[in-house]
Simulated assay, not measured.
Amino acid sequence: MALKDLLVVVDDTAAAAARIDAAAQLAARTDGHITGLYPVVPLTLPGYVEAELPDEVRAMQRGYTENQTARAEALFADAVRRNGLTDRSEWRVLYGHPTDSAALHGRYADVVVVGQADPHRDRDRPIAVPQDLVFECGRPLLVVPYAGSFPHIGERVLVAWNGSREAARAVADAMPILTAAKRVVVMAVNPKAGPAGIGDEPGADIAKHLSRHGCRVEATHIVTDQIDPGDTLLNTVADESCDLLVMGAYGRSRLREQVLGGMTRYMLEHMTVPVLMSH
């Protein structure tokens, strides 16, 4: 599958510009089409309050929404222009919850580009939530961190491999990026041994598969109880100057991850580079 149809979820957060830029440069690299989706969340008030609102207040609400929408569209249009995507772009404004809107429209795209939640700023505003979207849209997510800029995505890629169905799905979804990458590192952290594990040479099988697709790939693994597996991956991202992490999402139930913790939750909270994840 080629990445010919990208959907980027745009919002009013400060991180929106970097997210749009990341999606636009990826669309330009893959000769793809980019759609900007701007969900507008209607203000819901109790009926008795709504009935008493003066016309001036209603006009102010409409004006604020129109101004925010125009600002978001301007960011999208600028990124589209700079990346030569004017003839391969579309802008959509929808009313509804961002997660619901992104899940519905994301089913008609090859990948959905969404932002990491900022715990300091996004608590009181509706946003497209990656934890929910990865289950509901049926497409891979490219989650872009709320801090930083990402001028290159997919030149040096780290694949988090544990032999699971979710990891295999993520590798397949990321294949157009992996085949074009300058370097791909497959890493297994604390790999399981035995028949239910991933072999005597952890990562070798999936690396062989990737090499048959023309990927410039190498496999490595680490066994440690001194460092959290998530930190091990992020340390490798830094050491190898990777600009993308590919991983499966929620190999165990979301409730269990919420209670006990897990790799998906950890990455969504601590990511330092964009993460392509699939469930």
Rank of each mutant, 00 (worst) to 15 (best):
T179I: 11
A219M: 03
H209E: 10
A207T: 15
G248P: 07
M175V: 04
I222Q: 13
V259N: 07
E166D: 13
G197W: 00
A249C: 04
G230E: 07
N235G: 13
V184T: 09
I206R: 06
I198Y: 01
P119N: 10
R216F: 03
G197L: 00
P145N: 08
A160I: 01
P126I: 04
L244Y: 03
I127S: 02
E240S: 05
N162Y: 07
R183I: 08
G262M: 03
N162C: 08
V237M: 08
M175T: 08
L233F: 05
R256H: 13
A219S: 10
H152T: 11
G261L: 05
S149K: 12
N162Q: 09
R156K: 06
G262F: 02
D225R: 05
G203K: 09
E218Y: 03
R256T: 13
C215Q: 09
P126W: 01
D122L: 07
G248V: 03
V184A: 04
W161F: 07
D124W: 11
G199L: 05
A249H: 02
A128H: 04
D173G: 08
L178Q: 07
R139Q: 14
D122N: 13
L244S: 03
L260G: 03
S149Y: 02
C242A: 13
D122K: 11
L255I: 08
S149E: 15
D124C: 09
G248F: 00
A196R: 12
V171N: 01
T236P: 01
E136M: 14
D205P: 09
A170R: 01
L260N: 02
H209M: 14
D122I: 06
D239L: 12
V237I: 15
P140Q: 00
A193I: 04
L158V: 13
R121H: 15
K208R: 14
T232Y: 01
L244F: 08
D239E: 12
Y146F: 15
C215F: 05
P202C: 07
V185H: 06
V171H: 00
V246R: 00
G248R: 00
V157A: 00
E155H: 11
V159A: 09
I153D: 06
T224L: 01
N190V: 04
R123Y: 10
R165Y: 06
A167C: 09
H213A: 14
V157W: 00
A196D: 15
A128Y: 05
Q258K: 14
H213D: 10
G197D: 00
A204Y: 15
T179F: 06
K182Y: 11
A193D: 12
A128T: 06
V185T: 15
K192I: 07
E240T: 08
R156L: 05
F135M: 15
C242N: 06
G230W: 02
V171P: 03
P195D: 03
F135K: 14
G138A: 07
S211C: 09
L255Q: 13
V186H: 06
E257P: 11
S149W: 01
S211F: 11
A128E: 12
S164I: 05
R256S: 13
M175E: 10
L142I: 11
N190Q: 02
R169K: 05
I177R: 00
P191Q: 03
G138L: 06
M175Q: 15
L141H: 05
P126T: 06
P176L: 06
P126Q: 04
L141G: 10
R254F: 08
E201G: 06
L260K: 01
K192V: 07
